[in-house]
Design a binder for these strands. Structure first.
Length: 430
RNA sequence: GGGAAGGUACCGAAGCGGUCAAACGGGGCAGACUGUAAAUCUGUUGGCUCAGCCUUCGUAGGUUCGAAUCCUGCCCUUCCCA
């Protein structure tokens, strides 16, 4: 199965330029995906592009990851309704280094193979490119009419646009187009890949290559990842799902995939795992025999968590999930040794309270809404208790005038508070 | 520079002198059901020393027994004309 066939059955191709597949059959090619270094970690929204590169390398071609140091300073107008904030160079450099380290988990940058992956940074060739040279050598080849016809531009200068569009953002597609030209010349890179929203920017690049050096370049875009319920992929109430364990704990990461709907899981498992078509068909068939078991989500979460973090982190996340969502009782909780206990609750907000105050017996209101900020007000705590939504150490706490004392202490120094089903808080006694 | 409209709780949006801690919708949170899902149903959604009190309707003053509601200044937003 070649690269294009592989991506096709996985549902990862939205649009492809005629001739791309033929070219890739004929020779080993280089292709690139651009990544904006707006933060010092990738999030799962970047994962599709990264997976495209992964498949590219697996099929014997050469992946290039372009870190957009220069373009990141401008901001891509595609899909944006307002002008972007600009990043300074120091932040960019820091972000770039962090991204490089994360990409190394997916792509082989080290081995002495002909299709070894490479990271390039457009800041390196853009920063010394003078404005005058740029508009003379590059701008000359593309008409404003052509640039204006792009959807991303039309949207911003149309009558219904409120904020308008700066010249800086307007130039974005030309700068990105130049990246492609540069890589075409320097790295013999003939294909650019990206999300469906990048089609306009990518074609500016192929157009530029055609006009400037009479070369032929190609494009592949993947569909934007959606959710069946219309929500935004990769976002939860608490924000983005990051690959960096400091930003999103492996447990939260695992939980994200585990909570995906059936419809979405069917799509995602093809895109985000390397499981073969047969394996996936099997899993889907098994899943729908007993959907409540959620085999599909479990497999999806396992594959991605292991790939992004590690087998160990994955196993810890499963263990934590069993305790947090299973029928664990306060009895079982207290049986956990301290190391396991802490590992399970890694990432759960922790509050410190004076030990002697609890041993003497403390009013529930004072403990949860005064000594700690688990509840922002006593009124809210009261409501939660009335609604049967508060548990201490996995057991319902229903008395709004209750007292918490030494018999609630686990492992000599912990109390586990739970708001609803999913929100845990750890109180450490000091 | 001229003219018009408007700023209400997380968001949208009613209220236009007392019965307003403020309708309604969305969102959030919690409960039931369930598959840690979706859909649905229920409760809740300013704070407190909680049948009462305190702080909130852009902001600062004023009128009034009483103001989100009336008046004045200021700030901000949007639209139309130049």
């Amino acid at each position: 199965m070649n690269f294009v066939e592989e991506l096709t059955w996985r549902g990862m191709i939205h649009d492809i330029m005629p001739g791309t597949e033929e070219l890739m059959e004929k020779e080993m090619i280089s292709a690139y995906v651009g990544i904006d270094p707006t933060a010092d970690s990738l999030h799962i929204g970047h994962l599709v592009g990264v997976m495209m590169l992964k498949h590219l390398q697996l099929s014997g071609h050469r992946p290039l990851a372009l870190v957009g140091g220069a373009t990141g300073m401008i901001g891509d107008p595609s899909g944006k309704s307002a002008e972007r904030n600009l990043l300074d160079e120091e932040t960019l450099r820091h972000n770039q280094n962090a991204l490089k380290a994360q990409l190394a988990k997916f792509l082989d940058f080290e081995s002495e193979i002909p299709n070894k992956a490479e990271i390039v940074n457009n800041y390196d060739w853009m920063s010394n490119f003078s404005f005058l040279d740029f508009i003379r050598d590059i701008g000359k080849h593309i008409t404003v009419n052509y640039m204006m016809s792009k959807e991303s531009v039309k949207k911003r200068i149309g009558a219904d646009s409120k904020t308008g569009m700066s010249f800086t953002e307007f130039s974005y597609q030309l700068v990105q187009g130049y990246d492609f030209l540069h890589l075409y010349n320097e790295k013999n890179c003939k294909v650019q890949m990206g999300g469906a929203d990048q089609w306009g920017n990518i074609t500016t690049g192929t157009e530029l290559i055609r006009r400037k050096v009479q070369g032929e370049a190609f494009a592949i875009t993947c569909p934007l990842i959606t959710k069946a319920d219309g929500g935004k992929f990769g976002k939860t109430e608490s924000g983005n799902i990051w690959l960096d364990p400091e930003r999103t704990t492996p447990y939260a990461f695992y939980q994200f995939w585990l909570n995906v709907s059936d419809e979405d899981a069917k799509k995602y498992i093809k895109i985000f795992t390397l499981l073969s078509k047969d394996e996936i068909d099997n899993i889907i068939a098994e899943h729908f025999k007993e959907p409540g078991f959620r085999l599909l989500q479990k497999k999806l979460a396992e594959e991605i968590t292991v790939m992004v973090h590690s087998r160990d982190e994955y196993e810890m996340a499963v263990k934590a999930s069993k305790i947090l969502f299973g029928k664990a009782t306060s009895d079982e909780l207290s049986k956990l040794n301290e190391a396991t206990f802490l590992a399970v609750f890694d990432g759960v907000p922790v509050f410190e309270v004076n030990k002697s105050e609890v041993e003497a017996g403390i009013h529930i209101m004072e403990l949860l809404a005064d000594k700690t900020t688990i509840f922002p007000s006593k009124g809210e705590l009261k409501r939660t208790i009335k609604g049967n939504g508060l548990s201490i150490n996995k057991e319902k706490f229903t008395d709004e005038n209750g007292i918490v004392d030494s018999k609630y202490i686990i492992n000599k120094k912990y109390i586990l508070a739970q708001k609803g089903k999913k929100n845990y808080f750890l109180i450490t006694l000091v």
